[in-house]
Amino acid sequence: MHVGLEHYLIVSALLFCLGLLGVVMRRNLLVIYMSLELMLNAANLALVAFSRFNSNLNGQVMVFFIITVAAAEVAVGLALIVALYRKRQTAHVEDLATMKL
């Protein structure tokens, strides 16, 4: 069977589901963060596939922006996690159930 747009969309949907599963199921902050990256990547794959099959480059520009923003977001998020770890000595979400530091 010839590979078309729907094949890429199915892969993207499955990858997004995997990322969501990781965010809900895992209890380590860093692994949750990696699962968030998986979800962003799934969205990127869908955008690139749409861009290719509609002969429109705007989708690829959007993916470029998403990758850059994701890099900035990872830097800030990891700095927050490190600051939290310094205060509380844990990176496990069940130990971080209160809003008070």
């Binding site: 890429y8 860093l30 963060y33 990696m34 990256e37 990547n41 990127n44 690139v48 596939a49 861009s51 290719r52 690829q60 993916v63 470029f64 990758i67 850059t68 994701a70 890099a71 990872v74 830097a75 990891l78 996690i81 490190v82």
Partner: peptide, 25 residues
């Protein structure tokens, strides 16, 4: 999908920078 530039950026930014940050932390 013929997105060669994005493939290069993906490897440079994610595999090169983001993962190194993760491992560092």
């Amino acid at each position: 999908l013929h997105a060669f530039f994005l493939a290069a950026v993906q490897i440079l930014v994610y595999a090169g920078a983001v993962i190194v940050l993760f491992l560092f932390v």
